[in-house]
Design a protein around this nucleic acid. Structure first.
Lengths: 214, 214, 214, 214
DNA sequence: CTCTAATCGAGACGGTACGTCGCGTCTTACG
DNA sequence: CGTAAGACGCGACGTACCGTCTCGATTAGAG
């Protein structure tokens, strides 16, 4: 039972946006061996996430895939979730940064375009993160961070509670992006994806208000 | 690796709507001891789901909670996911039955009212299922079944693909219901919940009405 | 460090003479599989002790040698020392029972004869125990138990403290027996061994007769 | 298994009497830093041996106790047994030198007096070596060296084989000394200890012959 | 009084054994 | 037959120590 407490919320991807790459490492890792091992582990994790869900990925598997000794894994990350953290943290921070503005500037679809463009740029990574084995963790992480960021902002008045609005918005965006990434790459352009995002997301949270006025 | 294959899709809650309770149990259990064990197991599962996510619940734990021997569990269910299945299958089938019509009769909010009313009737169970440890499984199950049912229907034309529409619709409904169930019971009436569902879900996926207005 | 406390005295062979075969097992093991595993483990331990010292024997090795899964070892014994215990406990109790009288009836060499005869009867086992990898543990165990038993007896007056006398006596006996067992089996008869025991042990610790003669 | 070969005889204390301090250190260490580290390691080893058996002492522990980096240990000694060697080698050589004559000059107890006096002079060190965690190693080392030295001498005829005689003699001496060192320091004087040694050791190995004559 | 080489602290690394835990299968005995 | 009881093979878990290694930083002692 000793490790269970730490796993209470297994979906703790990117618990903090100001993220230190690794726990033990003071500030920056200089040892070239450590750097190499860290990269190998991250790459191995991504490779495995393409194939199976996170829970089915064994630390032994990751280590083997990375060509690194099993015990070495723990010198870099306490759990495989922490490794996923390290892999995804930056990406998530970026995405949340691009997602949040959506709530404010209701009209412009510039933010959706930026969002779609950004995801498209890192399409392979986000495909793994959103449609692979880490999908559940990623959704939870995005939602958690979004909620936190939204809570720190000036409270937007709305006909629905903010947390519900954030939840629905983020969830919708993630679903749409996931769906998009599951399609063949040439099926929908960035602009088309942004348009879908625009229509579905904005209409749901905002136009409720419009309709309410009517 | 022997057990991994069986777990390939751990979220196989209610994989089939025509559901046979368990493998070993022939067709209808008559032995009163078996009936009692089965009930105890189901109740224990629900009790545990209130406290922790499904993955952290051990079969040993379920058996102990049910006051049943560990090995007895396997005489009723092959895995704990299968037990969750047995617990949730009926509920899910009901919910999907109430959810699908939403796609069709775009206008009336009678279906939303029925949906909210139904959930409210089984509020404690659905609270566990949607906000407890089985949340992820339930979402996946609902989505899976909805997709299947939708695919069997006459193809509704729409400006977005059907599968995306279904995904977004179901996801939104689940999110809203979850949020509702997390609130104090007296906070929102059934009618209010139905109203929120109506506005958020319909506006986003079905109509495109807003866009049509533009 | 968690296991270190338990290992504080690694030579805890036969810590008690009234010995329960295994810890978990209530009174008597009936499951034929468990019996078989237990026998296999004991036999494997003896086989390995012929080849290397106890500290160099790995639990993994014992399990492999016994054709038993590694984890199964722990279902029978908490440590490899405990297994040695189970193997040697009866033998040690017997030997101590035969050794102690020596302190009393100073004259008769009947007890030495009985001692030598007993060891000779179980020559192969005692060869392993006294000249194999468990030698250190066995010496410590014999000494410990002898001291305890001696302390419970009527205090024999002597020109040297009892504990020193016991220590020297037991040590000498063990050394002589070990030496004997290392010789070819036909080199010294039981009677000859008993004679050596008689001369060396009695002359040194009990009598002080030589000094009395001077 | 790589390290196992090196540990095959873990009791290789003072395997050779002509002893080179360490492998890496060329011949004579002049660098004051190295000298300091070496002293610190030896002192730390002795301190730890007061508290726990050798096998339970970790190289990491020794290094920490010495205030020296872990890797630095290996620049001085290949194993912890080698460190014990370095600590004990001189002492052991001295003791063996004082012990061996006992076999020859049967009558005089001058050698026992010298032996006891020598041990008493270095009482604290010998207390650690003989009654602390290194006891087993020390006994083995003393016996080994004594056997070797005895084998190189003119074969003394006796009614028992030389190796058995040496074994018994050394073992007895060690046991008596250990017992003595475990007593309060003022309990037995050097002369008294020498007297006990004289009586017990001589009577056992020699008077057998006397008795045989009778 | 530099400058070169030995020494050290720091710690990553591959490796091996540890003891624990949960899994799903099985065997036995009981009611 | 269904159950309690529990042994078993399996394999992942996280920890600890081993001995090796690559790094700078420092600090002798020889030129």
């Amino acid at each position: 039972m000793k490790t269970k407490q730490a796993r209470q919320s297994p979906a703790n991807v990117c618990d903090t946006m100001a993220h230190t790459p690794a726990g033990t490492v003071p500030s920056s890792v200089t040892d070239p061996r450590a750097i190499k091992s860290g990269q190998a582990l991250r790459a191995a994790m991504l490779r495995l996430l393409e194939r199976k869900p996170l829970e089915q990925i064994t630390i032994r598997e990751i280590a083997a895939e990375a060509g690194v000794h099993y015990a070495t894994f723990f010198r870099h990350h306490p759990t495989k979730e922490a490794l996923l953290d390290d892999v995804a943290a930056d990406q998530i921070a970026q995405l949340v940064g691009l997602t949040l503005p959506v709530l404010d500037e209701a009209g412009g679809d510039a933010s959706f375009l930026a969002l779609a463009a950004y995801v498209n740029e890192h399409r392979s990574l986000w495909t793994i993160l959103l449609t692979g084995g880490a999908a559940a963790s990623m959704r939870a992480a995005l939602l958690r961070i979004s909620q936190r960021v939204a809570a720190e902002r000036a409270p937007t008045e709305s006909w629905i509670p903010v947390d519900l609005a954030v939840t629905c918005t983020v969830t919708l965006i993630v679903e749409i992006l996931s769906w998009w990434l599951r399609q063949p790459e040439e099926a929908l352009s960035v602009a088309q994806a942004a348009r879908i995002l625009h229509r579905l997301v904005l209409s749901s949270t905002i136009t409720g208000a419009v309709e309410a006025l009517a």
